[in-house]
Amino acid sequence: MTNLLDVADLTVHFQSDAGAIEAVDHINFSIRRGEVVGLVGESGSGKSVTSFAILRLIRRPGEIKSGSVRFDGVDLATLSEEQMRRIRGAKIAMISQSPRTALNPVIPVGKQISRLFRLHEGLSARVAEKRMLDMLDLVRIPDPRRRAGQYAHQLSGGMCQRIMIAMALATSPRLLIADEPTTGLDVSIAARILDLLRELGAKTGAAIMLITHDLGVVAEICDRVVVMHAGQVVEAAPVRSIFHAPAHPYTRALVGSIPRVDRDVAMTPIPGSVPSLLNPPPGCRYVSRCDHATDQCRVARPPLESRGQDHDVACYYDIGRQTGGVAA
């Protein structure tokens, strides 16, 4: 069976007075049906831009310079704006970081959901309302009938995020893009939102692309992880490999930089910062922060290559380690 999503050679630039900002640079990754994939990296690594590019929501001065996004076997670039609109929200849904601002403040939350059923499935007002109440029940909103009549400002942050999830899942999407869905929520609320996402993903068969910089969240619900740095994919692997056998120096630094509740280990911040994406030099973009950088790394960008089962890495040093060509 084909992948649900294939992103190939995708490049997104933003034009500025000083030149092109290469926000996403020739990235490749796939998402299989029903899979939960984490897209992780620091701020400015291009995670959100990637999700906008998938939805064809890049607006000027941004521009998709190259590459393709195949969703369910269809190259999204070939669709008309009208066809694309039918994909957005229906086949690919998105929930964002600030649920309260993503909801319409002057329409009761229930109506925002039932509207989707009327719009996408042409249901009558009565049936749509019933489906809406079922949906609220599914995301475990207590007392759905009362809550449906309320406005976003009357609900807590966790409740708003549940409404967003209900909206996103209302149209039975095949892919749910969740951009930092638990940032800003209290830990116990966040834990419940994650449980809900995982459970509903499994129930509806929707794949989830989870954008986050919280590796705890990644370990919690992801099957596979795509690590981005400065607009490039540096490593893609099953979640266990990312945490137990990270190959790229950046992935290792990222895993080693987080404070851990679960064990007593030293925490080492990643040196330096994400380099400027304005006319970046050729070669690996991690080079200025990397302990293992060589002249080769400065000259040519290491390709993303397979390291065995489902594990891709873009690093010359790591190739050397694999073949014994470089002394560690």
Binding site: V187, S188, A190, A191, L194, D214, L215, G216, V217, V218, A219, E220, V239, R240, F243, H244, V255, I258, R260, V261, D262
Partner: peptide, 8 residues
């Protein structure tokens, strides 16, 4: 409730 950065 704290998410632990260890899948196991």
């Amino acid at each position: 409730a704290v998410p632990v950065p260890d899948p196991d």
